[in-house]
Design a protein around this nucleic acid. Sequence first.
RNA 1: UCAGAUAGUCGGGUGAUUGCGGAUGAUAUUGCCGAAAGGUGUCAUCUGAGGAAAGUCCGGGCUCCACACAAAUAUGAUGGCGGAUAACGUCCGCCGUGGGUAACCACAGGGAAAGUGCCACAGAAAACAAACCGCCCACAUUAUUAUGUAAUUGGGGUAAGGGUGAAAAGGUGGUGUAAGAGACCACCGCCUUUUUGGUAACAAAAAGGGCAGGGUAAACCCCAUCAGGAGCAAGACCGAAUAGGAACACGUUGAGUGUAAGCGAAGGCGAAUUUGUGCGCAGAUGUUCGGGUAGGUUGCGUGAGCUUGUUAGCAAUAUCAAGCCAAGAUGAAUAAUCACCGCCCUUAUGGGUACAGAACCCGGCUUAUAGACUAUCUGACUAU
RNA 2: GGUCCCUUCGUCUAUCGGUUAGGACAUCUGAUUUUCAAUCAGGAAAGACGGGUUCGACUCCCGUAGGGACUG
Length: 133
Amino acid sequence: MVKDESLIIAVLKKRAEFLYVAQGERAGGRFLSLQTRKPKPRLAENSPTDDKENSLIRYGITASKKVGNAVMRNRAKRRLRVLLKNHLPQRGQEGFDYVAIARPQTTSANWQELEQDLLKLLNRLTKQKSGTI
RNA sequence: UCAGAUAGUCGGGUGAUUGCGGAUGAUAUUGCCGAAAGGUGUCAUCUGAGGAAAGUCCGGGCUCCACACAAAUAUGAUGGCGGAUAACGUCCGCCGUGGGUAACCACAGGGAAAGUGCCACAGAAAACAAACCGCCCACAUUAUUAUGUAAUUGGGGUAAGGGUGAAAAGGUGGUGUAAGAGACCACCGCCUUUUUGGUAACAAAAAGGGCAGGGUAAACCCCAUCAGGAGCAAGACCGAAUAGGAACACGUUGAGUGUAAGCGAAGGCGAAUUUGUGCGCAGAUGUUCGGGUAGGUUGCGUGAGCUUGUUAGCAAUAUCAAGCCAAGAUGAAUAAUCACCGCCCUUAUGGGUACAGAACCCGGCUUAUAGACUAUCUGACUAU
RNA sequence: GGUCCCUUCGUCUAUCGGUUAGGACAUCUGAUUUUCAAUCAGGAAAGACGGGUUCGACUCCCGUAGGGACUG
């Protein structure tokens, strides 16, 4: 529990942040696709050596009109939100932003398959990063 | 029992694990984030989508915009009559026309004898009617002839029949006539007047007219009624940056400025336009200092409120009484997963369980909707 | 969330309530050419959907669906 408290999970809110993450690395699965990127360093006033700033994991969810009507979009967002909150603190890399993009299959998919899909994507992204670095 | 019509109600339930928004209370520290405004932790209790939350098609509340009244004009909307309502293009009752065996349903349902326009093709003719084919010969002429008969090259009569068209100038039957014709008569329709019933739309009856007035106003138009604009991303407050202004006072038949004459307001602007009547507003002045973009707070949940009953009314609805408080987010909570039950389909495995997610709030309309239930009524069949 | 606009052949577009809905590009067939291109001739191809007004609707009115623009 103490570990989880230190890993504060925040939500992406601004359109510019979403667009910035979309420039980063991405991975597509059967039921969703995932994007990640290390956020821009903040202004010089805020000390860059702050540990809490660096260890922050942020997430955002995108559900476009392709997913369906408002009921389908909201359902997709709720399912993805639960998945990200469960798995990001353990599997996600500290100091990165994640954006999950819903697909039309996201609402109808089996829960366990959806969960495995997300884990697969998370692993792939971390491997890519470790390989490149 | 089957087939319908109308009005209305509901539109899954239980449990387990893990979570989210809001309110209230307690608690923690002057802790954490932030320049500030402000936000934030933990625990407990309570609470958390719809009948359409949708389309944004009408009507209002609320907020701001420098304004109100009256008349005329323009633009737009509405359109049987009466009522309901905050208001409406909504609702209720009634009338008329059309549809249905019926219950019942649909109707932008004022004016075409104020004016203008349009009515393709076809057809003789499409609107102050009109003679193409027909029909007729009282007139004229000719022939035969001798008070008659026949013909049309003349001149007329005729709206019965044919054909065209969406539509051809009352309909059917008779009298009548050279042939015909509301020319005349009967019934029906129409128009005018009067009477009766009704608040009214309208209905009924009587008398008269003898038929005039084709359709189209969701073509222009006329008549009656209604309408200022923008919208919670309205607006208000707190407040880094940037720019240089903002608030209050005075003042509009005279603020202020200048020694004075004079200047200034005999002007300009103000919710479609013009006119009239009033009224308001702005700047030049003085005093004070903050200003308000990112961001934050608020607007924002006690309301044309809900439930039950009472009284008035055919009803829409209204009065009164008692009880209740029931979402308030802002990358946006109201859930995710699993199990069982309910309902439907299928021999079974199994499959399905609708339409659909509040965003300032209400009253309607329209559209989408698996299925279930209730009440009243209509028709057919069977039994008694 | 709010305020507006537009839907006609495959594409871009015309249209006075009376048509067989016109034109250009594209494509289909034939001719020309050894073949292709170009050219010539001919053909196919559309009123978003559902109602109403009218004798008659792409056009007028109402509703629905789809698409687009602006707005912090």
